[in-house]
Design a protein around this nucleic acid. Sequence first.
DNA 1: TATTGTTATACTCTATAACTATA
DNA 2: TATAGTTATAGAGTATAACAATA
Lengths: 150, 150
Amino acid sequence: MVKALRDPASDRFGYLLRRASTVMMADLGRALAAVTLRPVEATILILVGANPGCTQAEVGRTLGIRGANMVPLIARLIARGLLAKSRADGRSHGLTLTASGQVSCARVDAIMDAHEARFAGLLAAYDAPRLRDALTAVAAHSEGVTTSDT
Amino acid sequence: MVKALRDPASDRFGYLLRRASTVMMADLGRALAAVTLRPVEATILILVGANPGCTQAEVGRTLGIRGANMVPLIARLIARGLLAKSRADGRSHGLTLTASGQVSCARVDAIMDAHEARFAGLLAAYDAPRLRDALTAVAAHSEGVTTSDT
DNA sequence: TATTGTTATACTCTATAACTATA
DNA sequence: TATAGTTATAGAGTATAACAATA
């Protein structure tokens, strides 16, 4: 028999955000297993696809990933033949999707559409557009609240 | 000069959830540094405070933390004198807050209130109760979507 | 046979520090 | 001096496998 505890944290907005995020990321992770990509890798493909020639530093800034952590991420996508680097600047490289990368990118896009659709039903009852606005506001609040970063 | 990339992921609900969650968890983490506790540890204190005598397996199930990962978590809180174990079952132990743990728990509660208040302004414009309901629905959706767990 | 608690382990994610080359 | 890319490394968080004691 499983006893259910009283959970005061379930009233907390931050806690709910984290739990909801975990559930959706887990679902996306399972869906992306079909193309052997993790959520971060899939997001990078989408981003490079939408911004051909962008640098890996730009990708990192957009997704909130440090330069040091971008290195193995990009290296792996290049090793798998999905991404290509071309000298841009002497110190920076322009990133583009390979032909194979474009195929993967299209598949990722379809997988993400299906993923979002699985949750759309839940959100329809709660004014999805306003929900999106609220989350965007919270996500954008980082600068205002952050004290450690420079 | 910083170039801004077009970010198709910013339209995705799951992506927004993850970013918003990261922002709030970072803020909570900074706030909890005042009591030298991480968000997980603080949540465990709150949970044990609300459910005196509960077992560590029950805490783990409630918070979605595996038994193997609960061990060092609980051990650390006991080592710091915030939590106490008392034999309950022969194989399970009842968890309770120590006097010191109760003090920390009260401080954690105040810190979390202030943390939520910092974001309340953003959420007030978006019907906070409905937002809470929507996130609860998504978080509770885990069973319906999950295929790997048993 | 199932559950609690535990040990050991491994992988991912994220973070800092320090370095090279270039602007 | 600042930025791009890199290397090495360390700390969380989370996952599995396997085990002992108990129900």
